[in-house]
């Protein structure tokens, strides 16, 4: 099985993971839960988590419900492995990998149908085929954007290094900066970095376009829906065992808050600036492209398994060598 590398965990942000934590406070079901922290990366689905900590019904079951954005993959990795992060946003395939490695974790839900886009400042690039002979830049080599893009291009018969070139950067914002200074003109980016590229381009006379949705291309390549069950909440099993009532409320709040975010992008933009550290206009304008929707993991099981199967075609190690069994998917 592959290890959960720093780069892979960096991919969480690219994949819009969401997370949570509860610092070692798993009590018997009868005791009220206190000081539960939901962890999430600075991307769209975390907006729903931030919102529900202020307005959700879960607050009635938890004395001290908080949200924190994790800032580094090391922070996330340490939190998950130690159990300090009892609920954590995470790319779904990473959750499967951890589960298959024997970590006591389960997937509560999927909160986005994919938020990857091809952005370009090259007017000649209008479709996937137009990258032929050109260089594509993306963050996080061998992680979510890269894996998905590899699968899609392979299905079209294009080979990186032969039909087009691939270059990598450490973070999405590094790719954004490369596009602004002309060092890159085609990029695969997650939201909200994709929207940031457009807005920064408008300030800097760089006309960046959203060329295509990777979700759409995924659908074409797989013959399935134009949707990638990309990320959701990973929950520590002890919390599942002892506080299912909280998880039920949390799932209901996630559904409600996701809808609130979609309905109130300007308010969500401010919430995002305050909680995630991303500029409000960027958050606001990215929301229509984040494909926010909250689906209980057990209800998304088939779609997730299809996704894991496609990734395993590239390398079974990506998901820990096998499909996770049914216990991985929480049903409430």
């Amino acid at each position: 099985m592959t290890d959960i590398s720093r780069r892979k965990l960096l991919g969480f942000s690219a994949a819009a993971a969401i997370g949570a934590s509860m610092p070692s406070l798993v009590f018997a079901n009868k005791k009220p839960l206190s000081n539960l922290t939901l962890w999430g990366p600075p991307v769209g689905p975390s907006l729903a988590l931030a919102h529900l900590t202020n307005n959700g019904n879960t607050r009635k079951l938890v004395d001290g419900l908080n949200f924190k954005a994790w800032r580094t993959p090391d922070q996330l990795r340490a939190g998950i492995v130690s159990g300090d992060m009892q609920i954590s946003g995470i790319p779904s395939y990473v959750g499967a990998n951890l589960y298959n490695k024997g970590m006591p974790v389960q997937m509560l839900n999927i909160m986005t149908g994919g938020l990857l886009y091809m952005m370009s400042s090259n007017d000649s690039v209008k479709s996937l085929e137009d990258i032929a002979g050109k260089t594509v830049t993306m963050p996080f080599k061998n992680d979510m954007p890269d894996l998905v893009f590899q699968y899609i291009t392979a299905k079209t018969g294009m080979k990186p290094g032969v039909d087009f070139q691939l270059t990598y950067a450490a973070t999405p914002m590094e790719v954004v900066q490369m596009m602004m200074i002309g060092k890159a003109d085609i990029a695969i980016l997650p939201e909200p970095a994709a929207t940031a590229t457009i807005l920064k381009g408008k300030m800097g006379a760089v006309n960046v376009r959203r060329v295509l949705s990777i979700q759409d291309e995924w659908g074409k390549a797989t013959g399935g829906p134009a949707r990638i069950p990309q990320a959701g909440l990973l929950v520590n099993k002890a919390l599942v065992d002892d506080h299912m009532d909280v998880l039920k409320a949390l799932q209901a709040d996630c559904v409600r808050s996701t809808q609130w975010v979609l309905n109130n992008p300007a308010n969500a933009g401010i919430l995002g600036e305050d909680y995630l550290g991303v500029k409000a206009p960027v958050v606001e304008l990215s929301i229509p492209y984040v494909n926010l929707e909250t689906t209980l993991a057990v209800d998304a099981k088939k779609e997730m398994e299809d996704f894991f199967t496609k990734l395993a075609e590239l390398s079974p190690k990506i998901i820990g060598g096998k499909l996770p069994d049914a216990d991985f998917y929480i049903g409430l």
Partner: peptide, 10 residues
């Protein structure tokens, strides 16, 4: 404190 009516999570 972030601004009036705007708080950070911690």
């Amino acid at each position: 404190y972030k601004a009036y009516q705007r708080s950070k999570p911690e």
